[in-house]
Amino acid sequence: MERSRYLQVALEAAHAAAEVIRHYYRDGVEVSIKADATPVTRADVESEEVIRRAISTAFPDHGFYGEETGSHALDAEYLWLVDPIDGTRSFVRGYPFFSTQIALMHRGEIVVGVSSAPAFEQIAWAERGQGAVLDGHACRISQVHALEDAAVSSGNLRTLAGGPRWADWAQVVQRVARIRGYGDFYHYHLLAAGRIDAVLESDVNILDIAALSLIVTEAGGVFTDLDGGPVTLETTSVLAGNPRIYAAVAELMRVPG
């Protein structure tokens, strides 16, 4: 897979951030609570600063939307979307389900995505029209056709659990072969690699899933919100899967076609 300069810079930034994150992992790093009641650590801030510096040096006219260090030029033609540690709660508890998410949006379309999991020593990336790669190898979604044979993973279901579609989700749970809750980046990596067949989440933000949405679609999958809409800066839910299992779950979940 040929790498553009955009992708190369994103990969270099992810690798630099991983060094910062590994330094602090399991090191008793101090935790603060942000205004939205989510945790933040020195590792979050320092790793985002490393990413931001790499991007601004290479592309000074690009916009930047970061989880920890703020944003600028959100209306720029090119906009970088960065969550330095997606899964900070996992990070501070010492279990490995956290990742660095870096995506580039061009005029509203995600064109580059990098998902780096330092504790797993795993990295996935994609570029629009170029396919998806996991740990140096091209990856593809599964060919499972029947819902009864499918493995489905869910996460962040608080909103779904409090709403009328919870009963729809129960139908999915009863039909599929296997339900798991891998969560965060990990179930999207599994999906892109063909190891599970669908993912559903009801409480996310764009920084969590921008890069992952491109990785999954470039691996041959379908990735929308729970209303069947495309990924945008306002996206807060996900239904993703191989095309057949996506369609089957979408029907049970009453996702508009």
Rank of each mutant, 00 (worst) to 15 (best):
M1Y: 11
M1N: 09
Y6V: 02
A10R: 01
E12Q: 10
H15P: 04
E19N: 14
V20D: 09
Y24I: 11
Y24T: 06
E30C: 07
D36F: 00
D36E: 01
D36T: 01
T38L: 00
V40N: 00
R42Q: 08
A43K: 11
E46N: 14
S47C: 10
S47V: 14
I51L: 07
I55L: 10
S56Y: 08
S56M: 15
T57V: 06
F59H: 15
P60W: 08
D61Y: 09
F64M: 05
Y65A: 14
A76C: 11
E77G: 10
D83P: 03
I85G: 01
D86F: 00
G87I: 07
R89D: 12
R89C: 14
S90K: 14
S90D: 15
F91W: 08
P96A: 06
S99A: 12
S99E: 03
T100N: 07
Q101K: 06
I102H: 03
A103E: 06
L104Q: 00
L104C: 00
M105E: 07
H106D: 13
H106L: 09
H106C: 06
G108M: 04
E109N: 09
E109H: 13
V114Q: 03
P118S: 12
A119S: 13
F120R: 11
Q122Y: 03
I123T: 02
A126H: 09
A126F: 07
G131W: 02
H137K: 10
A138F: 06
C139K: 01
S142V: 10
V144D: 15
N156G: 15
T159F: 08
L160T: 15
G162R: 15
D168P: 07
Q171G: 12
Q171T: 08
Q174C: 12
A177L: 06
A177E: 12
A177K: 10
G181T: 15
G181Q: 13
D184P: 08
H187T: 04
H189K: 02
H189R: 00
L190G: 02
L190T: 03
A193G: 14
A193V: 09
I196F: 05
I196L: 09
L200M: 09
E201T: 11
E201Y: 10
D203P: 04
V204N: 04
N205C: 07
I206T: 12
D208W: 03
D208T: 11
I209Y: 04
L212M: 07
L212E: 05
L212S: 06
I215F: 03
V216F: 02
V216W: 01
A219H: 04
G220V: 04
F223N: 00
D225W: 12
G229Q: 06
V231P: 03
L233M: 08
E234K: 14
T235V: 10
T236M: 14
L239A: 01
A240H: 01
G241C: 04
N242Q: 14
P243D: 12
P243Y: 08
P243C: 13
A247G: 08
A247Q: 14
A250C: 02
A250E: 00
L252C: 05
V255Y: 00
